[in-house]
């Protein structure tokens, strides 16, 4: 099954650039883990229901009330680059 594992596709999806030598090590490690988790295939899970909360809590909703937000200064203070109150990034259109 690990033959399907294409590290370039996955790193592209995950938006992480990988160096060639990194790829080799990661590919090897991930294959070890994937081989281990293969054991799950032997478990019968046909009728199992999924609940994302381990204690099956039901979602509670919040009333539609607004409360003060972060100050503009606090919101921007960790920004790598700003301009006229905006966050700035290199062009997001290719």
């Amino acid at each position: 099954m690990t033959k399907d594992f294409n590290i370039d596709d996955i790193s592209n999806l995950a938006s992480i650039h990988l160096e060639e030598k990194e790829k080799l090590k990661l590919q090897k490690d991930l294959e070890i883990v994937l081989e281990h988790v293969d054991a799950l295939k032997n478990i019968d899970v046909k009728d199992e229901k999924i609940d994302i909360h381990p204690l099956s809590k039901v979602l509670e909703l919040r009333e539609d009330e607004s409360t003060p937000s972060l100050s503009h200064k606090d919101a921007m203070k960790n920004s790598p680059e700003t301009k006229d109150g905006h966050f700035v990034v290199p062009p997001s259109i290719e």
Binding site: S15, I16, H17, N78, P80, F87, P90, P91, S92, E94
Partner: peptide, 20 residues
Amino acid sequence: RFGLREPASGSYEMMNKTRA
């Protein structure tokens, strides 16, 4: 919006490099 940023000419490249 915060944290490390690696220089790049486009956003996608910037994100890819920063995360790398």
